[in-house]
Amino acid sequence: MTDIASLPYRPCAGVMLLNREGKVFVGQRLDSVVEAWQMPQGGIDPGEEPLDAAFRELGEETGIARHHADLLAESPGELFYDLPEDLVGKIWKGKWRGQRQRWFLFRFLGEDNDIDIQTAEPEFRAWRWVEPSALPDLIVPFKRALYTEILELFAAHLR
């Protein structure tokens, strides 16, 4: 049995994408059996800047081109979450205890038809726009505190 506390956090970038109506993009993960929706996010490659990772992940998960997203704000530091103990050995080959994330707030400059979740390596089976306040209720329970913190960080930009 691995000592979970000795495992590192996976470096990650997350994207809160706002449309013109002030709603946030969420996708329903392909690999999840629970009714959970999340914002785009993913690992930061070695040597990659967090902002570049955020744009890359946005493209990989939503098909949204970089010119359709405008940076509004970023988290001043990293936000952390821990995986539930029963998932630690099952996700990321047991290498990580959770994630340390840099979050970025983007304004979506495109149209809905600029979004295509059928990417080269799809992560979402469905997507929609939601009110920011709905985010904590849509995410898996172990990420609720994280999503609440993101809402607080970007509150000045949310209607």
Rank of each mutant, 00 (worst) to 15 (best):
residue 64 I to T: 03
residue 23 K to G: 04
residue 134 A to M: 12
residue 9 Y to K: 09
residue 126 A to K: 08
residue 136 P to L: 14
residue 26 V to K: 10
residue 54 A to K: 04
residue 70 D to P: 00
residue 101 Q to V: 08
residue 36 A to S: 12
residue 152 E to Y: 08
residue 154 F to Q: 08
residue 31 D to C: 04
residue 86 D to I: 05
residue 137 D to K: 11
residue 19 N to M: 10
residue 25 F to P: 03
residue 140 V to F: 03
residue 20 R to Q: 14
residue 117 I to K: 11
residue 114 D to N: 15
residue 78 E to W: 01
residue 19 N to K: 08
residue 26 V to L: 12
residue 37 W to C: 05
residue 52 D to C: 02
residue 8 P to Y: 12
residue 102 R to M: 09
residue 143 K to Y: 06
residue 132 P to L: 14
residue 30 L to H: 01
residue 74 E to Q: 05
residue 104 F to T: 10
residue 125 R to V: 08
residue 135 L to I: 15
residue 122 P to N: 13
residue 119 T to D: 06
residue 70 D to K: 01
residue 126 A to Y: 03
residue 9 Y to V: 08
residue 94 G to W: 06
residue 102 R to T: 11
residue 139 I to N: 14
residue 33 V to K: 13
residue 66 R to H: 02
residue 25 F to C: 12
residue 80 F to V: 04
residue 112 D to N: 15
residue 159 R to W: 02
residue 41 Q to R: 07
residue 143 K to R: 15
residue 58 L to S: 07
residue 105 L to D: 06
residue 45 D to M: 05
residue 155 A to K: 15
residue 154 F to M: 09
residue 75 S to F: 02
residue 69 A to N: 00
residue 140 V to G: 03
residue 59 G to Y: 07
residue 28 Q to Y: 01
residue 152 E to W: 09
residue 79 L to S: 01
residue 77 G to C: 02
residue 41 Q to I: 03
residue 140 V to S: 11
residue 28 Q to R: 15
residue 60 E to Q: 08
residue 132 P to V: 12
residue 94 G to P: 05
residue 157 H to F: 11
residue 31 D to A: 10
residue 43 G to D: 05
residue 65 A to G: 06
residue 89 G to I: 04
residue 148 T to Q: 15
residue 46 P to E: 12
residue 10 R to Y: 07
residue 159 R to I: 04
residue 147 Y to E: 15
residue 121 E to W: 02
residue 24 V to H: 07
residue 43 G to M: 08
residue 133 S to K: 13
residue 21 E to K: 10
residue 97 R to F: 06
residue 109 L to V: 00
residue 53 A to D: 04
residue 137 D to N: 14
residue 127 W to S: 05
residue 6 S to D: 14
residue 108 F to S: 03
residue 155 A to P: 00
residue 141 P to E: 15
residue 47 G to Q: 11
residue 13 A to T: 03
residue 67 H to K: 03
residue 130 V to I: 15
residue 131 E to P: 07
residue 50 P to M: 06
residue 14 G to L: 14
residue 141 P to A: 15
residue 75 S to G: 02
residue 122 P to C: 13
residue 120 A to P: 00
residue 40 P to G: 11
residue 87 L to Q: 07
residue 1 M to N: 13
residue 62 T to R: 05
residue 35 E to L: 02
residue 103 W to Y: 12
residue 134 A to L: 14
residue 114 D to Y: 10
residue 80 F to H: 14
residue 41 Q to E: 06
residue 80 F to Q: 11
residue 55 F to A: 01
residue 47 G to K: 12
residue 102 R to D: 02
residue 130 V to W: 10
residue 97 R to N: 06
residue 53 A to R: 03
